[in-house]
Write a protein that binds this DNA or RNA. Structure first.
Lengths: 157, 157
DNA sequence: GCCAAGCTTGACGTTTACGTAAACGGGACC
DNA sequence: GGTCCCGTTTACGTAAACGTCAAGCTTGGC
């Protein structure tokens, strides 16, 4: 019996689904699209730690707004490794482009957060004056913190 | 003839499309979905500065990954203003939720940017050693800066 | 031996955010 | 008077990212 914390550890489709809060359909879909290619044991899929790492990247990519095909491109580029210098140069350009895009997105997000904070403050003031009973309390930091430490992301949607 | 910089300024659909780099179809679609409601001059749409501001918010929302219906919700909440305290409380909760989501997204983006930077550095080193001719130069800061000052965002896609 | 649980592969349905084409109206220009 | 050009509505098409059956295999438990 293998040490469950070792890289030799493997996962069933369901285990990964539960851990990352996705459906089996999604994982099969990613496989269809060439983003994952787990081993098989008979017909059943067997995911290893590399598949798990790729899934992490896939989901992160999704969270920052990349399409599956864009994610696939990046994953493929990684895979190519040191195939040819020309490929590497192309890869470098792509990465730089992506960085610029992401930085712009970051600015948008900061902007949005700023506006939302202001709106919250103004709302809090109004409510504090008129209906302090209705004033929802700020989040429980303990909970938020634990969720983050657990790697849980249930904020989406 | 009105001062074009004043809030009284109005816009045709095409003017807004060019300024924000969207298609007429998109603006009509947003209207269908209740995100915009420009005045009419006969059949023709006439957008004022408030419509323009809403469009700015719509596009920013899109950039940070909100769906049109989510954007509509937020816009509607703004519109409600000080209708009822209960509505305000709901709005406050929604805004706080949205902030948490956006902060998580920002972390993802930072993470992704970090990884991409590392990958770039490693690629640059390899290329510098083997094929310095193929090494693409970092972006022209002048260009990037001017684009930003112009409010141009052509990084997407 | 059988049934339920969990896996598999199709295959069709759904939502979102538009694209695209058809058919029409009204000014401006030549 | 024709013809662009810009605008309109209506309507069907599409790509992405899955959801949702349907039908079948296999494996453990009773």
């Amino acid at each position: 019996m293998p040490d469950l914390r070792r890289p030799e550890r493997t996962y069933t489709i369901r285990q990964l689904c539960i851990e990352f809060k996705v459906t089996p359909r999604a994982l099969r879909f990613y496989e269809d699209k060439g983003l994952l290619s787990p081993a098989r044991e008979g017909l059943n899929r067997v995911y290893n730690y590399r598949d798990r790492a790729r899934l992490t990247l896939i989901l992160r990519g999704k969270r920052v707004g990349l399409s599956l095909s864009e994610i696939r491109e990046i994953l493929d580029l990684y895979k190519l490794g040191d195939d040819g210098a020309a490929q590497q140069a192309k890869m470098l350009r792509k990465f730089r482009e992506r960085i610029v895009t992401l930085e712009a997105q970051r600015e948008d997000i900061d902007h949005a957060i700023g506006e939302l904070r202001e709106a919250c403050e103004s709302l809090e003031k109004q409510l504090a004056g008129n209906h302090p009973d209705l004033l929802p309390k700020a989040e429980n930091y303990d909970q938020v913190l634990r969720a983050r430490l657990d790697g849980v992301h249930e904020f989406a949607k």
